[in-house]
Design a protein around this nucleic acid. Structure first.
Lengths: 180, 180
DNA sequence: TGGTTCATGTAAGGGGTTACATGATTCG
DNA sequence: CGAATCATGTAACCCCTTACATGAACCA
């Protein structure tokens, strides 16, 4: 069982989902393509950590609604408590470009920074919209055991980090361009 | 040529390095093991993007000092300008655990958060120490084309993000434990 | 005397992306 | 009328980690 398997189980604790849904929801804390998720779900089903119900649809392809089993929940709980804390992994091409920024002209460097800024702002707005949609008002904050609680924390974290990254760019850009 | 290849080239722009050095320095913006780096350096050498000088040592193993060529620098510059901006990739087991935090007791959740806090604080201190060591005073800030400049920007970014992550934990921890 | 640093490499295997495959419906 | 959405799956391939391999010097 790899890390992504536990990520899938942790989503299924909240509610039953199809592989298609999981692929989209997962991006809050892990990136994975459907081609990786479908085989993993099949494996989890073989291992009795999930079951699925086939739902026939007209006009759309049939779908499989996966539900976590008690065995699956136990496995997830065990992993949360026992898995050793690992280093976090970040891979970002932009950072390499920043490292070698002296190699290009100031105009080109500025363009790079502006494009990054725009992409981050767009992502921030999308996330803030998503969060408001799912966590209207401050309801979930108070309930620790609410199934919304963990997701709410993660939205707040991502948004905070995006804002920090934007304020870093705001600080760095004039240095790149020069004070004149 | 994959992304890591350009990461290696961007380090070699600053100064000639051995594979061993690159492995350690790289962690500022990319994680990679020596077993991935050595074969890539051999490939870059075949492609004439780097050359190496064999340096015999006594008491220690011999080493290969790699230097970037003009072709290598041109390739890197081209990549910086032409490579399309990609989404950033973050993978962090802790986030999965946060998502499913309702599954464990408050005491266990608190332990998880405290361990995370300690790990982040340690990493922050290590980074701040490293930065002070390499960028004493504010010298590199003013010089855009300084070979130190890019690295200085990345240290500031990492440190800012770590602080933001710590302040998120500080906000989240009392919510997890409860207001009582 | 046992762990860390220096220093380079190979081999096996798991993790992850890209591309191939299918097909009706809905939206601009 | 083409693009996106819904919905699942397989195959090929690259990226990356873990483990194997070697060996002297230095430090606790």
């Amino acid at each position: 069982m790899n890390t992504l398997s536990y990520g899938l189980l942790s989503m299924l604790v909240r509610k039953p989902c199809t592989g298609y849904e999981l692929t989209k929801l997962l991006s809050l804390f892990w990136q994975a393509k459907h081609s990786q998720i479908y085989p993993l779900l099949a494996m989890l089903e073989r291992e009795k950590h999930v079951t699925f119900e086939l739902i026939g649809q007209t006009g759309k392809p049939d779908k499989k609604l996966y539900t976590i089993t008690e065995s699956g929940e136990a496995a997830l709980r065990g992993w949360i408590l026992d898995a050793p804390a690992t280093e976090t992994l970040e891979r970002d091409e932009f950072l390499i470009k920043v490292y070698a920024i002296g190699l290009v002209s100031k105009a080109e460097a500025l363009k790079l920074f502006n494009e990054r800024t725009a992409a981050l702002q767009e992502r921030l707005q999308r996330l803030e919209g998503e969060m408001e949609l799912r966590h209207a008002a401050e309801v979930p904050v108070t309930e620790f055991s609410s199934k919304q609680f963990g997701r709410y924390l993660l939205y707040r974290r991502r948004i905070g980090l995006l804002k920090e990254e934007l304020s870093w760019i705001e600080w760095a850009t004039p240095l790149v361009v020069g004070k004149g």
